[in-house]
C-alpha cells in the first residue's frame, strides 16, 4: 500500500483546531506525551508496516 499524501481530511481547519484544543493547558512534557500517545494510536489504526515506514520517511524529510 502507498501512503496517502494528498489532502484526506474533509475539514482540515476543524481538525487542526481540535488538535490544538487537545493540548490546551498542558505543560511541554505533557504535550510531548500526548503527541507520543497520539502517534501510537494512529499507527495502530494504520497497521500496514509498509505505510508506516513511508510515513516515518516523509516525516523525517519534512523538516
Amino acid at each position: 500500500m502507498i501512503l496517502k499524501s494528498h489532502a484526506n481530511i474533509v475539514d482540515a481547519d476543524g481538525f487542526y483546531a481540535d488538535l490544538l484544543a487537545a493540548h490546551r493547558g498542558l505543560s511541554e512534557a505533557e504535550s510531548h506525551a500526548l503527541n507520543a500517545r497520539l502517534v501510537l494510536v494512529l499507527a495502530n489504526h494504520i497497521g500496514d508496516a509498509g505505510v508506516l515506514a513511508q510515513a516515518l520517511t516523509l516525516a523525517r524529510e519534512g523538516s
Partner: peptide
C-alpha cells in the same frame, strides 16, 4: 505544517 507543506500535498491546505 509549514515544513511538511514543501514535501506533502496534504499539509498545504492546512497552511492558514
Amino acid at each position: 505544517v509549514l515544513h511538511l507543506a514543501a514535501h506533502a500535498d496534504f499539509a498545504r491546505p492546512m497552511v492558514n
